[in-house]
Design a protein around this nucleic acid. Structure first.
Length: 461
DNA sequence: TGAAATGTTGGGGCG
DNA sequence: ACGCCCCAACATTTC
């Protein structure tokens, strides 16, 4: 009895439903990972970097258990067909994807191989609760976050994470080398300053560190990019190096153990529910990454200013908080959440550039780029999303900067050319009497841009 | 998970 | 003592 365990965005051994079931069903488990670039939304560049290291880590953990993972590159349907035939596979087990295109593909795969006599089993542990299980009182799906989150909080039942199962493999598998997949950047190697450590072990360490130190002040510190107040679990959750159930369960345990952190724990769990809500919306509106959720926004005519878009991408807008964020993104593959909102507001409401431009840049540069979260986040800021920020909520980059990076610590970390700028001018060096060398003047006047945006947004109401 | 514009209040300076 | 004005400080409304 040979069982194929198809790894996807669940690159972990613990608390993995499909893996656990596969190991119970069979004493000959072949783990497989298929690098498939054919779906419409394939991996962004930063994700590929992460994927490489994550697969290396998974491979090493399995080897310690005398199990070889089968790596192959190609179209999933075709590769599975080859593998099933070659290794005389009886069962195919995997965890569901909630990306609509992948889910559709998976359903057709299930049908196809079931017909051929393979037992195909799908499991669900990428979300707390499957989107089709949560509806409001009138049987519709929720379109507003707060009532949705109440429904989640009252129905989620986190369970103790499943242990790493005993896994055994009899079949000798011959794998491809993932070095040949070209996952890592070469010239230029923009990943040189990445400080991330992909892999299941680091995912768990990150969680434990967060629970021990930053969770208690999360409520107050999470919006401060100059602090290390966030969990930094997003890429691990995206690739499934840790399960959402594991994180939820661990935070609850910590809350029971130490009731004084309750308020912060609730605020953090609500953030996890935003992730859940993003997938929920994507489930009911599969075009979320491509199409305005609120169709009134289809009438909005975005500006296509290539010079401004380029300045935004490279962090040369002359607005320090925006530029610091964009350079953090480029240099580290990540950006603090508060700053994501600021740079997104700046792109869509100051520069009047289509949110899809921002979405696509984030997709390519974020190690935690995630179809649902990225799309929902951008539409939220742009105002086109479900339960989105209203069009008139326009961030003032200088005020946001003063409020959330009061001493300019975050700005100076990413903009070394401003390291000697006094605090008084760090948020807006253009006001400084000192001539700044190597830092651009603001590419637009925020006050003017704001008025223009308000007028335009009003027009589509 | 805003910010700006506008309105209101109340203390203090001053004639 | 009183009215008047100024203007923070805070509150409300508007975009």
């Amino acid at each position: 009895m040979t069982t194929l365990l198809w790894f996807r965005n669940d690159l972990r051994l613990s608390d993995n439903s499909a893996l656990t079931a596969a190991c119970q069903a069979s004493d000959d488990v072949i783990p497989v990972f298929i690098f498939d670039e054919s779906p419409k939304r394939s991996y962004g560049a930063a994700q590929r970097w992460w994927l490489y290291h994550s697969l290396k880590s998974l491979d090493a953990s399995l080897r310690k258990k005398r199990v070889n993972i089968l790596f192959c590159k190609g179209k999933a349907e075709q590769k599975l067909q080859e593998i099933i035939k070659k290794y005389k596979v009886n069962n195919l087990y995997f965890n569901r994807s909630f990306e609509p295109d992948l889910n559709q593909r998976d359903q057709s795969i299930t049908k196809r191989f079931s017909k051929l006599g393979v037992e195909v089993k799908q499991f669900s542990d990428y979300l707390l609760i499957d989107p089709d299980k949560i509806k409001n009182k009138s049987g519709e799906y929720f379109k507003v976050y707060t009532p949705y989150s109440r429904a989640i909080f009252s129905s989620v039942e986190a369970r103790k994470p499943l242990p790493i199962p005993k896994i055994s493999q009899k079949t000798k598998v011959i794998t491809e080398e993932i070095e040949a997949w070209g996952l890592l950047p070469t010239k230029p190697d923009w990943s040189v300053n990445f400080e991330w450590q992909p892999g299941e072990t680091h995912a768990q360490n990150t969680l434990v560190n967060f629970l021990e130190s930053d969770l208690k002040s999360y409520k107050d510190d999470r919006d401060r990019p100059d602090f290390s107040g966030t969990s930094r679990l997003s890429p691990y959750l995206h690739f499934g190096e840790i399960s959402i159930n594991h994180v939820w369960y661990a935070v609850l345990q910590e809350k029971y153990r130490n009731p004084s952190i309750e308020a912060s724990a609730e605020v953090y769990l609500k953030q996890l529910v935003w992730r859940e809500f993003s997938y929920y919306l994507l489930h009911y509106f599969p075009l979320l990454p491509y199409k305005n959720y609120r169709s009134a926004f289809d009438r909005f005519s975005w500006e296509s200013n290539q010079a401004c878009l380029a300045a935004w991408k490279s962090g040369e807008t002359g607005f320090p908080i925006v530029d610091a964020g964009m350079r953090e993104l480029w240099q580290s593959g990540y950006m603090h959440n508060r700053v994501r909102m600021i740079v997104a507001s700046f792109l869509t409401k100051d520069l009047l550039i289509d949110w899809r431009e921002g979405e696509s840049w984030f997709w390519d540069t974020l190690v935690d780029a995630d179809l649902a979260n990225n799309a929902a986040g951008w539409q939220w800021v742009a105002g086109s999303g479900a339960d989105a920020a209203p069009y008139f909520r326009i961030f003032n980059p200088f005020l946001q900067s003063k409020k959330f990076d009061p001493d300019g610590v975050y700005i100076r970390r990413w903009l070394p050319e401003l390291k000697d700028m006094p605090n008084k001018y760090i948020h807006n060096p253009a006001e400084s009497p000192i001539d700044v060398v190597g830092y651009p003047k603001p590419i637009i006047d925020h006050g003017v841009a704001r008025k223009k945006a308000l007028a335009l947004y009003k027009g589509i109401k």
